[in-house]
């Protein structure tokens, strides 16, 4: 039987969740035995080359590109996992959700003391910023959630192995944290 295929991405996140994934230490060798990675920063595969079983996404959606990526993941993955606070509830980027986008942009690009070219970036090539940061599950269906900032490596490990083996997820108290 072929190994389950996993894809991962970081949207509006800091890659901390991916770092935490690598934090499973030598178990990464076991993981590689268990699964095959497809599109992911881990192996630098930029485009989906096949349909995947599990998509793991870090970060929420703060711009149009995030949304497009997320929708592509939903299309190609049977199971989608929201990994970390940003994916689940917007996280730190969502601290701007109470502030009008105009105010944010003006503060960042016009009024801030350290900027030289006082212009709000508007090149058609760059993604468009959304009115607020959206949790992933507001945009596509999400199957599982793994909280934490970042999620503890043990949480990721326990969850993945449970999912791959079909066994119920049994979480030790210490691995579930929101920070």
């Amino acid at each position: 039987m072929s190994k389950p295929v996993v894809a991962t991405a970081s949207l509006a996140g800091c890659f901390g969740c991916h770092m935490s994934l690598l934090d499973i230490d030598d178990r990464i060798l076991q993981l590689i035995d268990l699964v095959e990675f497809n599109k992911s920063p881990v192996d630098d595969i930029k485009k989906f080359t096949k349909e995947c079983d599990i998509g793991i996404i870090e970060g929420g959606c703060c711009n149009s590109e995030n949304v497009e990526n997320l929708i592509e993941f939903r299309k190609h993955c049977k199971i989608l996992i929201s990994l970390g606070e940003c994916a689940i509830m917007g996280g730190l980027p969502a601290m701007r959700n109470g502030i009008p986008i105009k105010e944010c942009l003006e503060e960042a690009y016009l009024n801030c003391v350290t900027v030289d070219d006082r212009i709000i970036p508007n090149d058609p090539e760059i993604p468009m910023i959304l009115d607020r940061v959206y949790p992933l599950h507001e945009i596509v269906k999400i199957d599982y959630y793994l909280p934490g900032c970042p999620p503890r490596a043990d949480l990721i490990w326990e969850a993945l192995t449970a999912l791959l083996s079909g066994k119920p997820l049994n979480l030790p108290y210490e691995v579930l944290k929101y920070d």
């Binding site: 149009s64 009008p100 986008i101 105009k102 942009l105 003006e106 468009m128 959304l130 009115d131 959206y134």
Partner: peptide, 8 residues
């Protein structure tokens, strides 16, 4: 969702 940014 992108309207306000595009306008600004």
């Amino acid at each position: 969702a992108v309207q306000e940014y595009c306008k600004t």
